[in-house]
Simulated scan of single mutants.
Amino acid sequence: MTLVSPAKAGTETATAPPRRRTARRAAGLAVSLGVLLTLVAASIAIGAKSIPPGEVWHGLFHYTGRDTDVVIRDVRLPRTILGLLVGIALGLSGAVIQALTRNPLADPGLLGLSAGAAASVVSAISFLGVSSLTGYVWFAFLGTAVASVLVYALGGSRGATPVRLALAGTAVYAALYGYVNAVELLDSAALDKMRFWTVGSLASANMTVVRQVTPFLLVGTVLALALGRSLNAVALGDDTARALGTHLGRTRVLSMAAVTLLCGAATAACGPIAFVGLMVPHLVRALTGPDLRWILPYAAVLSPVLLLGADVIGRVVARPAELQVGVVTTLIGGPVFIYLVRRRRMAQL
């Protein structure tokens, strides 16, 4: 018979629940990755015309220039890759913004970032004659960066607080979208070209756009994931974060930089897509608890699940045409988010 000391038994009892929670979270993340891989395959195979798995394999790995090969390699593969990248970016940026502002209803629009992208794109269309998606990318990214700097400056720079950042973002959002509406009213050509971009779509994806935005998304993703521990401290309040040794000014600057890279590149590539960055982190928080070290990876996996799933639904329900992914995420996200908000235990950070 093996005797266990009371001290050792107490230690085992105290450490067992955290270990079980970690195991459950890891298992849930693995299942989520499996679902994501399934949707990646579905996104490549399903469209206006479904393509058998054998043809999909041939188009991906034995390209010979057949019609199905062209559809797989040149149309659906870039669209799927862009949906995957944009989904990760929206999920991470939403989770970081919610932690930074301590507001569970926050999304990239709260800080005026999507408005900055829209203002820059409409200016490029109206005043510079830019008409291609590859041109939109750089102007949208520039507009997002300028809006983030403006919000951070108005929010108090190093003395910024969550409330100040939210108020500054709301003011910048209103001002920039007022400018966008004014330009569109005065320039019908700009209105026509902006209409497709502002609805949020993956339909015009190509490998050129994917290559342009990937470096920004990779840097933003790494930076966001690295901020998990610091954002955990920020979520406890400024005084507690300082007591724990967190440098608040640096954390907020790096968080704004991560959100700018992620939201800017994602918005530039396919326009503003609603509800993904707002709803998924909110849902994930109910599954993982408040620990950002788990919320961020989960959001990075489940957000592209939602985005690719919405894109596949949009292609199926309106064959041979399609619904833009921004429309589908709004139709899905609105009722689901209302339900989530009404559940009191999920409505708080």
Score class of each variant (00 low, 15 high):
A168G: 07
F127V: 00
G34R: 05
L82A: 00
L110V: 15
L306R: 12
L37K: 03
A118P: 08
I295C: 03
A27Y: 04
A16L: 15
P335L: 04
A140C: 04
A235F: 01
L82S: 02
T64P: 00
F216S: 14
R211C: 08
Y173R: 09
G309Y: 12
P52V: 06
S303R: 07
L278S: 09
D311P: 14
R164N: 14
R25P: 00
R24E: 03
V336P: 01
G200P: 11
D74K: 14
L217N: 13
V31I: 15
G289D: 05
P281E: 10
Y298G: 05
R211G: 14
I44M: 08
L37R: 01
L82P: 02
G143M: 07
T267H: 10
V122N: 00
L308V: 07
V35I: 14
L349H: 09
V96F: 01
P215E: 11
A286M: 14
V253D: 10
L236R: 10
M346W: 15
L33K: 04
I72K: 08
Y179T: 13
T144C: 15
K49I: 00
A321M: 05
L225M: 13
G59H: 13
M1Q: 10
D291F: 10
A318N: 14
R25H: 05
L307A: 10
P281G: 12
A171D: 08
P290W: 05
L340A: 14
V325E: 12
T161S: 15
A321P: 01
G10T: 02
I88P: 05
H62M: 05
T330D: 04
L331Q: 07
A274W: 06
N206K: 07
M207V: 06
A45N: 06
D74I: 03
R242D: 00
T330K: 01
V312E: 06
P18S: 11
A153I: 12
A41I: 11
G334M: 12
N103A: 10
N206A: 13
L128W: 14
I125F: 04
L244Y: 13
T214N: 13
G169K: 07
A48L: 02
G289H: 08
G28S: 06
L186R: 15
G28H: 10
A124L: 07
M256D: 04
R73I: 00
T68M: 08
S123K: 00
V121D: 06
L186Y: 15
L236W: 09
A300S: 15
A124R: 05
L185A: 14
T15D: 02
L165K: 06
I332H: 04
L105I: 02
L185D: 06
I273V: 15
A145G: 12
A174C: 05
T13Y: 00
V336E: 01
M207F: 15
A266E: 07
K49Y: 03
L105G: 01
L308I: 11
V130K: 03
I295A: 03
S148T: 15
A118T: 11
L60A: 08
P281L: 09
S50M: 01
L150P: 02
Q212K: 13
H247K: 11
V312Q: 12
A241T: 03
G264L: 12
S132Y: 03
V341C: 10
Y136H: 14
